[in-house]
Amino acid sequence: MSHHILDAKRLLCPMPVIRTQNKVKQLSPGDILDVICTDPGVTSDIPAWCRITGHRFIDVKSDADEIVIRIEIRSRD
């Protein structure tokens, strides 16, 4: 299990979702991914994407500058 960070700052939805989707393809079940974003749209889009794909949305932390969404990679089967 390893911890990864994806910088999706200044990207507007759906680009952070696309970047997340592409990054997750390179990761293994159990890995943790922190997606760092600035578009507040990700707080609904990435959890929705997790629900569709079966990955686990862990939490979202945000301050005035950025939003960090943490997800756990799950096996697709």
């Binding site: 507007l12 759906p14 979702v17």
Partner: peptide
Amino acid sequence: EGHTHAIRKKDKAKPKRNNAL
């Protein structure tokens, strides 16, 4: 999808969602 809603504050009250998702 999302863009101008994400940018403009006046649209912030509306729930944001990606319709394809």
